[in-house]
Design a protein around this nucleic acid. Structure first.
Lengths: 302, 302
DNA sequence: ATGTCTATTTGACTTTAGTCAAAGAATCTC
DNA sequence: GAGATTCTTTGACTAAAGTCAAATAGACAT
């Protein structure tokens, strides 16, 4: 990785300071108008039936603290606390109509506040701001996603492959048969690699590399969760797989794609892959690509 | 003002939620690692000798609360509290070497954190993020600036005119004589108007409208504080002055500019002003502009 | 069935953050 | 020089936020 220039760091910190001071502070104020901030935040996070366990990990709260707050909200008639049938250690909290009303009111206030803020801008400036914020969010999300090499047999790897299979099963007209997925032994150690992308602890993408008989690498199952698309994550996964190939002394990687996956084909081309004749016969393959990996993993400035 | 589309509002709130959760929370954590957040923030705000009064207004704290925190920091050897010679009711706090060290350490940590965050992006993506954040900040600042009609004799108006005079005195090769400024009576009531732009309570720009003998309006002294330039504030001031002209049944406005102020000339052209022959003889004038004001102040989408 | 683990609850705390009012000291206004 | 005003300090509070540990109850593995 290139070192981060101090200019970018200070620019980021300036924005951060400005934003939290101007907007964040404002935010806390409208939320905590009638009740303690902790309770208000909690109420806000309870959509339709969340377990305390989930809330605890999401908000990073102490178990005792959370328990008491939930009970306090229950006493105020804002939430109902119930026991889920499958595991009676857990507690499910859900909003009562009164609670729902209060959340709506919070939302209304927050909307009014933002609306007042944007009011001073022309429609063109509003659109520009929205665009800039969308770009910033996209890049911040991407920056927060870590791509890791995991065991191909791990729960996260299998979960990703299952999601991948279900996903393309709906996209391929002929459906998709899970027996086509790589086995754990093909993507472990010297044989290959399995990458999983994590966003805030949740797996949101994967990719596999395996060694072909010909001594070249094959990339398979590059997949990104629908929530994490259009961030540039597939490229990151691809980069990681190419790195893994280099580490295993494979200086050529190949892959095939289905004709329906046109975005994927465009991405492979953009990443330096060139279309080649069929190198293997494969049920779901209609296009074949290859990339010769340079010796130095030093990309120029983008 | 056009109503704010709900799309912009929800987009803004999404960003806000994401950003405060991911970045803001993180922020509080590194700051408050060794000491309470309040104290850490305070320490951070004390640059080189600030009065408690200043801190109180800047951070919006209770006088008693602040006094105690300052004394606590003093007891810890982080700051020195002194009495300024000119007013012994006030207290000046400044960092001791130990305090300075701690602030540096805070900064180092924050930088490292941001650096780690940006580390996952390519140089191109980092630049894109920095650009998006700069755009967002610029527009947020602009949105937070309120342009108000004030009395031409008010302290804020005079302060702006003084700053304006000092500013152009350095830019005009021949200097600038303050007797050329409009008098309060020229820009009050039906005669004219004086606008001041406020950012978080501080005046950061101004503009004057006065009535010419010919029954047209004249715009003068459009000025923006150096800290608030490149936000698009001059256009806002100009808009406000044109509105004021329309309200006074002046459907033509004129203005003159000095040859050195080329950005200003470009802006007038971009705002629909056309260059005309000299309508008046004036020491500092080299270019004259005019704009015919349409009956409806309804700008198309930008 | 026994032990281990997980999720919540409860009790007993502490710290932080903040408010309000009164008092003291200095400055400013007339 | 009297009175109003400004800034800080101090005392006496309160509420919110959070911590820690022990207890309880259910789930899960062997």
């Amino acid at each position: 990785m290139k070192p981060v220039s101090t200019d970018h760091v200070t620019a980021f910190r300036h924005f951060n300071r400005y934003f939290t001071r101007r907007i964040g502070a404002l935010d806390d104020h409208y939320l905590g108008q009638d009740r303690p901030l902790g309770e208000a935040r909690l109420l806000f996070e309870i959509g339709d039936g969340v377990s305390l366990r989930e809330l605890r990990s999401r908000l990073g709260l102490d178990a005792g603290y959370l328990s008491r707050m939930a009970r306090a909200l229950e006493a105020q008639g804002m939430v109902r606390v119930g026991v889920p049938p499958h595991d009676s250690r857990l507690r499910i909290v859900e909003l009562t109509p009164a609670g729902r009303l209060e959340v709506q009111e919070q939302n209304r206030r927050a909307d009014a506040l933002v609306s007042g803020l944007l009011d001073g801008l022309t429609p063109g400036q509003r659109a520009e701001l929205t665009g800039a914020l969308a770009t910033a969010r996209r890049l911040l999300r991407l920056a927060g996603i870590a791509v890791e090499v995991v065991d191909g047999a791990s729960a996260d790897a299998r979960a990703c492959l299952d999601a991948y299979a279900a996903d393309i099963d709906t996209r391929f007209p002929e459906g998709f048969d899970k027996s086509d997925l790589v086995g754990p032994e093909e993507v472990t150690g010297e044989a290959g690699a399995f990458l999983v992308a994590y966003e805030e602890g949740r797996p949101v993408g994967c990719g596999a590399l395996r060694r072909l008989e010909t001594g070249t690498g094959e990339i398979r199952h590059v997949w990104v969760h629908p929530d994490a698309r259009r961030l540039g994550l597939a490229r990151r996964l691809l980069d990681g797989l190419e790195r893994a190939a280099r580490e295993r002394a494979l200086d050529v990687v190949r892959l095939d794609t289905h004709r329906t996956l046109t975005e994927a084909q465009a991405m492979y081309r953009a990443c330096g892959y060139t279309e080649i004749p069929a190198y293997v016969d494969h049920v779901y393959a209609h296009h074949w690509f290859e990339k010769r990996l340079g010796p130095l993993p030093e990309p120029g400035p983008e």
